[in-house]
């Protein structure tokens, strides 16, 4: 019974991880400039990798394999913001202008964001 529950949980986690990873990568392809792409890349590092590794944790059980999976995730969580920050500030000092929404679209978008807030 416990085995079945763990199996199902691990399935759900792995599918969720692949979903977030694919969405993040689609974001990397779709977004208009390097700064907005960084937001999408952060998704694959935090949720995509996290859920995928969590799914593997359920498979591993309480062994040293579990410790290694946790270490990989801890390492990713620790380094991902550092390299993201380094990339963003390098791009800024390299003179890449952040993308801003064209004026004719921005009014519509602001109202859209307002809708989401309420």
């Amino acid at each position: 019974m416990i085995d079945l529950i763990l199996e199902v949980l691990s399935w759900i986690s792995i599918i969720g991880g692949i979903f977030f990873m694919m969405v993040g990568t689609i974001g990397i392809v779709r977004m208009p400039d390097v700064y907005t792409r960084l937001h999408a890349a952060g998704m694959t590092d935090t949720m995509g990798a996290g859920l995928l590794l969590l799914g593997m944790c359920f498979q591993a059980g309480l062994t040293l394999v579990l410790v290694r999976l946790v270490l990989i995730y801890a390492f990713l969580l620790f380094t991902s913001p550092i390299s993201t920050h380094a990339l963003a500030s390098a791009a800024l000092s390299g003179g890449v202008e952040p993308y801003t929404v064209p004026a004719d679209r921005s009014g519509k978008l602001n109202s859209l964001n307002g809708e989401q807030n309420s």
Partner: peptide, 13 residues
């Protein structure tokens, strides 16, 4: 002089 990089590297090395 980059605070984040300095502190991160200190913990990681």
């Amino acid at each position: 002089d980059r605070v984040i990089l300095r502190v991160g590297a200190k913990i990681l090395i």
